[in-house]
Amino acid sequence: MSISRNKLLSFGGAAGAIGIAAAVARVACPGGCPTCTQCATHVVSAAGSTLAVGAALGGSYLAKKRSSDRSDDT
């Protein structure tokens, strides 16, 4: 069984996105987010999480689309 490049990229991108989201949360919240939910910098943390998740989904979409285009060409 072979694992396609798309799947590996999607997997790595998603894992990395959570890493980035956590890093942003760490920088945004001096106490080392999470749990308090009161700090105004949570918006930075939330934006970081949202962008990272969006980037992971978008990256998986693009990788899949490119490989599908390539297989159509051949």
Partner: peptide, 16 residues
């Protein structure tokens, strides 16, 4: 998207 790969990528991220 590769739903399964993205899903378990996020899980690994959450655990690590």
């Amino acid at each position: 998207v590769e739903i399964t790969s993205v899903r378990y990528g996020f899980l690994v991220g959450f655990l690590i």
